[in-house]
Design a protein around this nucleic acid. Structure first.
Lengths: 318, 318
DNA sequence: GTGAAAGCGCTAACAT
DNA sequence: ATGTTAGCGCTTTCAC
């Protein structure tokens, strides 16, 4: 009998002690495969992460690391899959019982992996929200609210004409949930507050950002507030504004949706809604553990955005 | 008998066909745990990656992705471990037979994991070189040569006074192999070519980089060539030079050791030695597969650096 | 409270 | 070329 027995049986103190001692002396380690075979639990989670253009690498890395760390707290390991592997990859690791459960990131509005995840006999959690989340467990920052709260911040400072410099066009083309939702939230708040403002996808290159800023300033002289949702170009946007004779925040206020440290170290420090990668990753694992334990967990978890005001936003010039 | 048999036995075409058909119809998937138990091969590799300060995140991500991709080509999966788990983590996954082999990154000159890796009964490959690589298989860009080749490039352009803006101080304090070696290669080449030049660690923040550039220019008026080995601040260094009245490359030439796309998109595009993350990751897996197959593989693989000249370096002003 | 034994689903060795 | 069987090292059930 598996002695240590994870306490599934009553054991006398004496025996427990003796067994423990032997385990230490012999350097005994249970064989993961045997354990998985006998218990039909591998104690491994699959994590599928994107490796494509338009996705901010440091954020993905933070997610991955927080998932691994959280999984370890629950005595689980993490198997890394690339988006490239797609549905077949998920099916493979699930059906072979290599993993007990799955976490997928970078969810698109209509994601081809959804039917598979629904049909799989193993629990899964999505980081991100598809258009139809029926029967799925999802968690993410509330990007709609994030877009809106940024607009409200600018509106509260008296700005009347704003713009969203968004993710690269291909991200919208793929209908990636979070980019879409920021744009929606931005648009809704713009309307609600009676502002004017549009959404401008932007390639993640300095050249593209500079060109876009120049065009925006030329076409919309009244523009005084910009929301940037495109990590790689936030710095460039600010510098391009300056290069075009606009001081930040004196002439134009800038708000970003990006990791906090990035915003802190910018010049000037940026008002931003941070992406709580740490918390999302950790909570995703908690949800999965709940499902593995047979609990019923909330189908949707939307983390409320927090806007941290910094030096990049100020009252609108008059 | 395990029918498909991975061709370990001669099978008639007829039987093979029938078996294949059934597999498809029944949606059969071999149970990974059972397979691991019976064959003592899990077909999983462990990859331990750093999550600490001073390590360039995008590069780490590239490594990880190329390892996963390469592993899949060999029908293996990848288990992700954080540096935090340390020796115990490696021992755990190795001794429990969760993984067949291990890859560790971010190797320090005196790395506490080395004795463990040597004693483990499973093969491993290090991405990076410790001080003593005896009995270990290592692969990495030849950072010593990379440092030297940058100096040679500058020397060839007539520069006489150069500087290395290096990784953050804590990276040297940890005696992380690659940072150390760049500094060594830099120093050796400086001496060999009769130049003057020193090594200057730099925190990975814009402020630190700006301060350092200002100080260097003030203290060393003859400085005309800079090698940057600190991804996060390359852009800042160039801008700080301009802010101090030095045109790049007219007054000061800049060379970097960083990923190619970063160098390409910089303003101006930077002459650089690229970090071949893709190739290193792929080759690391090949080495591991060789060892798993009982082949003897080279103990040390040093990939020669390639310097790509771009607009940031030019003949020294006279 | 503890011992004994029946699998879990494969692979590999031994059959024919 | 193919059928048969003994484990691989655990977990869990059943007996005491």
């Amino acid at each position: 009998m598996s002695y240590v027995l994870s306490g599934k049986r009553t054991i006398s103190e004496e025996t427990r002690r003796r067994v423990r001692a032997s385990i230490r002396e012999l350097g005994y380690r249970p064989h993961a495969g045997a354990r998985a075979l006998a218990s039909s639990r591998s104690n491994v989670l699959a994590l599928m992460i994107p490796l494509r253009s338009g996705i901010a690498v440091p954020v993905v890395m933070q997610f991955a690391m927080s998932v691994v760390t959280a999984a370890r707290r629950h005595d689980h390991d993490v198997l890394l899959l690339t988006q490239e592997e797609g549905e077949d990859g998920l099916r493979r690791v699930a059906d072979s019982a290599l993993v007990d459960a799955l976490i997928v990131m970078d969810v698109q509005m209509e994601d081809p992996r959804l039917p598979l995840l629904r049909s799989l006999d193993r629990p899964s959690v999505l980081i991100g929200f598809p258009a139809d989340a029926e029967d799925l467990t999802c968690i993410d920052l509330d990007f709609h609210a994030a877009g809106a709260v940024c607009v409200e911040h600018l509106a509260g400072l008296g700005h009347r004409e704003v713009a969203l410099i968004g993710s690269p066009p291909e991200v919208y083309a793929r209908r990636t949930g979070f980019a879409q939702r920021v744009a929606d939230g931005f648009g809704a708040a713009v309307r609600e507050h009676g502002l004017t403002g549009g959404v401008h996808p932007c390639e993640a290159t300095p050249e593209a950002a500079r060109a876009l800023v120049a065009r925006l300033l030329a076409e919309r002289p009244g523009l005084t507030g910009i929301l940037v949702h495109n990590e790689p170009v936030v710095d460039t946007v600010v510098r391009a504004l300056r290069a075009n004779g606009r001081a930040v925040p004196h002439d134009v206020s800038v708000v970003a949706i990006c990791p906090d440290e990035m915003a802190e170290h910018a010049e000037p420090p940026l008002s931003c809604v941070a992406i709580p990668a740490q918390e999302v990753g950790g909570r995703a694992v908690e949800l999965l553990m709940g499902k593995l334990g047979g609990e019923s967990v909330p189908a949707a978890t939307l983390l409320p955005p927090t806007l941290t005001p910094r030096a990049s936003s100020a009252p609108a010039p008059r």
